[in-house]
């Protein structure tokens, strides 16, 4: 039987983050991992196993969503952490921070409806060439909540081609039956994109909130799959390190 260690998750807190405590609860109390808040002035995150950039409205969304937070002191060390191959997950505003920082390509612009959209959606797993879908298969669907005004993913045709070629598109908005349709696109994102990774597959940005559907009382548990995949990968990675 494979044994799972306890891993140390760091949740970055910017002024205006508001899903930090939800993430903390899901990771600490549901998944039983170690978890710490990291104020954005921190400059060393090297001792963690996974970094989470939570949702919210960092710096009041001034200038562009995520733009000011992407220049926070902590982001240099998050970049270094990402380069070391360890998992970084940005959820909602965290995704916006990741694209603004250049850790992920593209940009997130105002929803095509101009409205803040807060509802449950379905997303389809498009790629498993990353460490966040370790416990899933291509074609699996997850029911998961979204809540954003700027989740409309945009990138140049060249970038889109590269995303497709490198299997960096991880989640797409889809209908109940898993079909990726224009009607199931809640914000106007190119190709219904709900989440992407970097080329290496260790940095994930996604607009939907897995921490908001990680236990029964929240009417959904499929968000757990993403956190559990990270833990599975950490287990695997640890085992390989032990052998080496």
């Amino acid at each position: 039987m494979s044994k799972s260690n306890i891993y140390k998750f760091g949740i970055v807190v910017f002024p205006g983050s508001n899903c930090d405590h939800d993430c903390y609860h899901a990771i600490k109390h549901v998944l039983r991992q170690e978890c710490e808040f990291l104020w954005h002035h921190e400059t060393d995150v090297g001792q963690f196993d996974c970094i989470v950039l939570p949702g919210g409205f960092s710096y009041g969304d001034y200038l562009r969503t995520g733009s000011i937070a992407s220049l926070s002191p902590i982001m240099k060390s998050v970049e270094k952490f990402a380069q070391s191959g360890r998992p970084v997950i940005g959820i909602c505003n965290g995704f916006q921070v990741l694209v603004e920082s250049g850790l992920l390509p593209g940009a997130l612009i105002t929803n095509s409806s101009l409205k803040f959209v807060c509802k449950w959606v379905n997303i389809r797993v498009e790629s498993t060439k990353n460490l966040f879908t370790e416990n899933m298969k291509v074609g699996d669907t997850l029911e998961i909540p979204i809540a954003h005004g700027e989740g409309n993913y945009f990138c140049s045709p060249d970038e889109l081609k590269a995303l497709n070629e490198n299997s960096q598109i991880v989640f797409k908005y889809c209908a109940d039956n898993g079909d990726v349709t224009p009607e199931s696109n809640p914000n106007g994102s190119i190709e219904n994109i709900a989440g992407i990774t970097n080329k290496e597959g260790n940095v994930l940005g996604m607009m939907p909130h897995p921490e908001r559907c990680a236990e029964e009382i929240l009417n959904g548990t499929q968000g757990r799959l993403i956190f559990e995949s990270i833990i599975s990968w950490l287990n695997l990675n640890n085992k390989q390190k032990d052998r080496a």
Partner: peptide, 8 residues
């Protein structure tokens, strides 16, 4: 670096 996002 900051005032615009060259992607968009």
């Amino acid at each position: 670096k900051l005032l615009s996002n060259p992607v968009i």
